[in-house]
Computed example of a mutant assay.
Amino acid sequence: MTKIKICGLMTLDDIRAVNTAKPDLAGFIFAGGRHHLELDQALKMRQALDPAIPSVGVFVNAPINEMLKTYRSGAISMIQLHGSEEEGTVTTLQKNNIPIINVFKPNQLNPDTKADYIMLDSGTGNGKPVDWTKLQITTDKPLIIAGALDINNIKQAIKTTKPTIVDLSRGVETEGIKDPQKIIDIVKLVHSI
């Protein structure tokens, strides 16, 4: 069964929707932009989140101390590196027993990363779709795919790439706000594939 991560959660309403839908992972963004959270917000949301759903902190070229502080606070249980972080950052964080997702653009995949998971994304969370049919993906690590996924293209993306996890944020929003029904529908669909 393919797993699913709902990312870019911003409110307690988002958490309620996720608790109802039961995705496999929930994502909090600490990297600026529209979905950015401060640590105190993330802590409140983590407390309201179903304890069975691990939370992932998304960072872009953040200082290691900031990532460690966020992890140690209990707000997150995994870290997603979405910038141009060096492998040394991956191994330093792993020494603290933190599972790491390393994100690459399709043409810059590093299958030799020490990260626990590899994510392929079209860019910087800009909603740009990826043509999954043109990718040659070779990795022995669990693969996560992201990039303008939604209810209309998720089946094809999963069939083409056979990922371990799919990651959605904007694809479950309506007018920039997480849509509970879209979250429920896509989690059910992905878990059925």
Rank of each mutant, 00 (worst) to 15 (best):
N153R: 00
I4P: 06
L168W: 10
E38Q: 15
M78S: 09
G8N: 07
N97A: 05
I4V: 13
Q108N: 10
K22N: 12
R170W: 12
D40T: 13
P180R: 04
F59P: 08
R34P: 02
L149E: 00
I183L: 09
T139L: 05
K44R: 04
P180Y: 06
L49M: 13
S55T: 02
S55A: 11
P180E: 01
T133D: 13
M1A: 11
I186S: 11
K114F: 13
F59C: 11
G83Y: 06
L81H: 05
R34G: 04
H35D: 10
I144Q: 08
Q80R: 06
I193D: 10
K5N: 07
S192E: 08
P111Q: 07
K182F: 14
I64P: 06
I6K: 00
T91I: 05
T92S: 15
Q80L: 07
A52T: 12
L149N: 01
K159Y: 10
V90S: 14
N96Y: 11
L149Y: 03
K114M: 12
L109K: 09
V130D: 15
D40N: 02
T113E: 14
I76G: 09
Q181W: 08
A17Y: 02
T70V: 10
L189Y: 14
N153H: 02
T133H: 13
R46L: 09
F59H: 04
N61Q: 02
V60I: 15
T11G: 06
W132Y: 14
R72K: 15
K141G: 01
A146C: 01
N61F: 09
T89W: 04
G123D: 09
I6T: 00
R72I: 14
V58Y: 02
Q94Y: 03
V190M: 12
D131Y: 08
I151N: 01
L109T: 00
H191R: 14
I193T: 14
N97V: 02
H82M: 04
H191Q: 13
I76K: 02
V166W: 00
L37D: 09
K162S: 04
D121R: 12
N126R: 08
K155F: 00
L12W: 03
A148H: 13
A115P: 10
I145V: 11
L135G: 07
N97S: 02
S77A: 13
T113Q: 07
I29N: 12
A75W: 10
K44G: 03
N107E: 10
L135Y: 07
S122G: 15
I118D: 14
V187D: 13
P99L: 01
V56H: 01
N97Y: 03
V103G: 08
L43H: 03
G74F: 08
T2Q: 04
H191F: 11
I165Q: 12
D140N: 12
G123W: 05
L135Q: 08
I79Y: 05
P63G: 08
T91W: 00
L93K: 05
S192G: 08
Q80C: 09
I4R: 07
G123T: 10
T164C: 01
G74V: 14
L43V: 07
D13R: 07
D13L: 07
V60Y: 11
M119P: 13
K162H: 06
I53A: 11
I118V: 11
F28D: 03
P111K: 08
